[in-house]
Amino acid sequence: MKTDIAKLLQRKKKQILEDWMNMQLADASLREDLMSNEELREQSNELLDTLLKTITDKNITEATSEEFEPVNEIISGISILRARQGFSPKETGTYIFSLKEALLKTLQTDLKDDVNTMVEAIMKVNKLLDVLGILTFETFIKGREEVILRQTDEITEISTPVIRVWEGILVLPIIGTLDSSRTQVVMENLLLEIVESGSTMAILDISGVPAVDSLVAQHLIKTVAATRLMGAECIISGIRPEIAQTVVHLGIDLSNIITKSSLASALKHAFGILKLDVKRIQKDKAL
């Protein structure tokens, strides 16, 4: 008589879950800080439940078939969730491979009288779980990639704020290296904000730019030229002595651009162009 592996495993579900949980809980790398034991049990139960409901003796060797869609979905969900929660690949791998161990253990005990069936069953389950393991890694990495992409977006957003410091004056502090895609974003944000606020002065502060080579200078010159085309003036501030040195040594011509060493002096210059005067109020002591 041929033993139905799927039925056998379904019957033994409770035992398998217990084994699996024990194995996970005994693992030294268990991350109770990221997920409580109850949550872990719930998650494991759901996965095991769906897996055992899905497998039949026929489809056990075809883990990529459509019938496994619900299982794949749960595994993908768990892996992506784990990637976001900060589990390591090893921990995520251990999770799925300890299930394999629990399943194999059950098969081993239950089929110990019939070695041939046992080997066949173990091979099948092994293969199935390997496929699921690969899926786990793929989705785990995808989850990680999403995190990285989101962070990259955030960094580009954060790194180019446009600040209205005064009526008609914008300041754009640039932090980090200025490459061509970054320049594009800076230029776009600056010009849009100029239109929106009707500002006629923009100050580009480069104190946070580690180095200015001819390419970066080219980008700065372009930004200034674009600002002028719109009808606004652009001052570059935050020129450190070492930047001034490299600029001159490289033979970059910045003479058409208003440059200031500090943001304060740039602001003062802008006030001058806009005909504004900032004064200390003299308190009259007689009053």
Binding site: Q184, L192, G231
Partner: peptide, 24 residues
């Protein structure tokens, strides 16, 4: 001048020498 137009002109290599510009 639209911001996108200004960026494009600069990339193209035109700086509209000889004319003044204003926002509105």
């Amino acid at each position: 001048m639209q911001p996108a137009v200004a960026i494009t002109l600069i990339e193209l290599g035109l700086e509209l020498k000889g004319v003044h510009t204003a926002l509105n």
